[in-house]
Design a binder for these strands. Structure first.
Length: 571
RNA sequence: CGGGGCAUGGCGCAGUCUGGUAGCGCAUCUGCUUUGGGAGCAGAGGGUCGCAGGUUCGAAUCCUGCUGCCCCGACCA
């Protein structure tokens, strides 16, 4: 490709809307342009990389035996009503009516459509297992689209759905997809982790996320440094009960005035105690009305996913309102504590391990110190409801957890019969009896991968593509070709030779100054750069530079192509 | 949905407080010079100042309503 034929310009200034580096670089390099909030056009350069990602995903899905299909973006409301998600999905589901006032949705995912196909086409266990996938645009009306294509509203997703006659087959299909995913992300040159995940609203029994590690990631993941390789989304990572028994009580229960000290930080400072010596009480709505109290150590955070799984707690989790709290405890938030509490109480392991702690006295302006479980109140029920923190032991006991940030680029689920049941998708088994198909579903955020790759691979000058994702492998830069016939001829012949050798080469044939060409080549992140100039040709040499390198190499002109091809093969 | 902010040429911004008919940088176009790290000089094109009302002799500027976008939070496959 000739750069002069590429009409979309790079920009020096960072658009005000771009917060994260990948978004800034994608706009500056001209990979994407925004059309509306969370909706982007992919330009020719950007599309080349997007297609690279797609191709790798497609190859690995095909290798794993999945069959590609293409489903409609617009789907009839009836299917969603049948599955029950018409009512459950909420405002993220974009709904619309056609001219006959029939309701449709723009697909945010395709469980309904694929299950409909499966129930029509699959009649016998002999047709199973099967895995259908597609690479296609989805629309989710996100409350807050941000970070460019990292959290867009319209985005391209590879979604796959497998159908099985039994759970054992699902296990196998799931394992095959997991393996395919590992291959894909490895091929893309990304640093990632497979982490255990919550199944969330989709439901199902097992689920793992593929997280690309990046500080700007929206997800927190807990990673063990031990040989267990444990990794989990922080939503899910369990904490262990303390290994050592609780210390004996040494202090008497004392009620102390703490006027206007409402937050943990305030109370800790006022009482001259570490926040870890305090117990805080959070009231959440109960599943049958009323409230449930959750006690945590002062320095710990509530984990909503864990909390909403507790018996008696409403799911999804809702914090109690100040009015409800006052009605349930006779006290306003800020002075709540477990002593003398009337509502059901769960206590986190870490809070239960404390002796001689401080907490609210359920009376405005007062806290207790020297509180002890079992002495000042009965032994409560111990649970795990907090987020893990760095230094916590790995749940396998084989290491220590640290917290990393990740960008979720893939998610695989064992769905079970959630959809085959509501949509009545069954096959006949060996005995001629109808059995519901067991399903798995497997997503990959294609567009998000491009952003994630940039988050992980950039420097001050711009993008540094992993070779498998680069829009071009080589950028060929003639300097002052308009004044030097020699340079012009040599650049053209190199361009032709590289093209003939099947190399994706970009010829910077613009009539621009050297600095402009160098800066653009670096911003665009092309892995290999060849400079053709009078200076080098006089010495019979070409100048080569790898995008990741900080210095040039001088190559003899005659063997340059050969050397370059070897470098490209080497990655 | 709550809180905050912004809306002026393709991009980034000033001008708004204190009303007087729109400006800077980048980008684009022309010419000359320049040519190994985002050139210089000279010139040019391009803006119903988000939309609709209102106040005023006069509104980018003041008032009212609306819309779009951004940020924080809650929410969420």
């Amino acid at each position: 490709m000739r750069w002069s034929r590429y009409p979309i310009t790079t920009v020096k200034e960072v658009p005000a809307e771009a917060e994260v580096i990948s978004h800034q670089l994608m706009l500056r390099a001209g990979l994407i342009r925004r059309l509306a909030a969370g909706i982007y056009t992919w330009t020719p350069f950007g599309l080349r990389t997007l297609r690279k990602v797609e191709a790798i995903v497609r190859e690995e899905m095909d290798r794993a035996g999945a069959l590609e299909v293409l489903m409609p973006a617009v789907q009839p409301a009836e299917l969603w009503q049948e599955s029950g998600r018409w009512d459950k999905y909420g405002p993220e589901l974009l709904r619309l009516n056609d001219r006959h006032q029939r309701s449709f949705v723009i697909g945010p995912t395709h469980e309904e459509v694929i299950t409909d196909l499966a129930r029509r086409e699959l009649k016998s266990y002999r047709q199973l297992p099967v895995n259908f996938y597609q690479i296609q645009a989805k629309f989710r009306d996100e409350i807050r689209p941000r970070f460019g294509v990292m959290r867009g509203r319209e985005f391209i997703m590879k979604d796959a759905y497998s159908f099985h006659a039994d759970a054992a087959s699902l296990e196998q299909g799931y394992a095959a997809m997991r393996e395919a995913y590992v291959r894909m992300f490895t091929r893309m040159g990304l640093e990632f982790r497979v982490v255990r995940a919550d199944t969330g609203a989709i439901g199902g029994s097992a689920s793992e996320e593929f997280q690309v590690l990046a500080d700007s990631g929206e997800d927190a993941i807990a990673v063990s440094d031990g040989p267990d390789q444990y990794a989990a989304n922080i939503e899910l990572a369990p904490t262990l009960p303390p290994a050592t028994p609780r210390a004996a009580a040494t202090l008497p229960l004392t009620k102390v005035p703490t006027p206007d000290q409402k937050t943990i930080a305030d109370v800790a400072a006022f009482l001259a105690l570490e926040p870890a010596r305090l117990v805080k009480l959070l009231l959440v709505e109960g599943s049958e009305g009323g409230v449930v109290a959750l006690a945590l150590r002062g320095d710990h955070e509530l984990n909503a996913v864990k909390a909403q799984k507790l018996a008696g707690v409403a799911s999804p989790l809702r914090m109690a309102t100040p009015e409800t709290i006052l009605a349930a405890t006779g006290c306003e938030p800020g002075y709540l504590g477990p002593v003398g509490l009337k509502c059901p109480l769960y206590v986190d392991y870490a809070a239960l391990a404390l002796a001689d702690f401080a907490c609210g006295a359920n009376e405005k302006g007062y806290h207790y110190t020297g509180v002890n479980w079992g002495r000042d109140l009965s032994e409560p029920q111990a649970v795990d409801v907090r987020n893990v923190v760095p230094g916590d032991p790995s749940p396998t006991g084989a290491g220590c957890l640290s917290i990393r940030r990740g960008i979720e680029v893939g998610h695989i689920f064992q769905l079970g019969t959630r959809y085959s049941e509501s949509l009545r998708a069954s096959v006949l088994d060996e005995a001629g009896k109808a059995v519901l198909m067991t399903m798995g579903c497997y997503g990959i955020g294609i567009t998000r991968i491009v952003a994630a790759a940039i988050e992980q691979n950039h420097d001050a000058a711009g993008i540094v593509w992993p070779a498998p994702l680069a829009p071009f492998q080589v950028v060929l830069i003639p300097l002052n070709a308009n004044r030097s016939e020699r340079v012009h001829v040599k650049a053209e012949s190199l361009y032709a030779e590289l093209g003939a050798a099947g190399v994706e080469v970009l010829l910077d044939d613009r009539d621009a100054r050297p600095g402009v060409k160098f800066a653009d080549a670096e911003l665009l992140g092309i892995p290999h750069r060849i400079v053709v100039a009078e200076r080098g040709l006089d010495a019979g040499r070409l100048e080569y530079r790898q995008r990741r390198a900080s210095a040039n190499e001088e190559w003899p002109v005659d063997s340059a192509i050969e050397t370059l091809l070897a470098r490209i093969r080497a990655g």
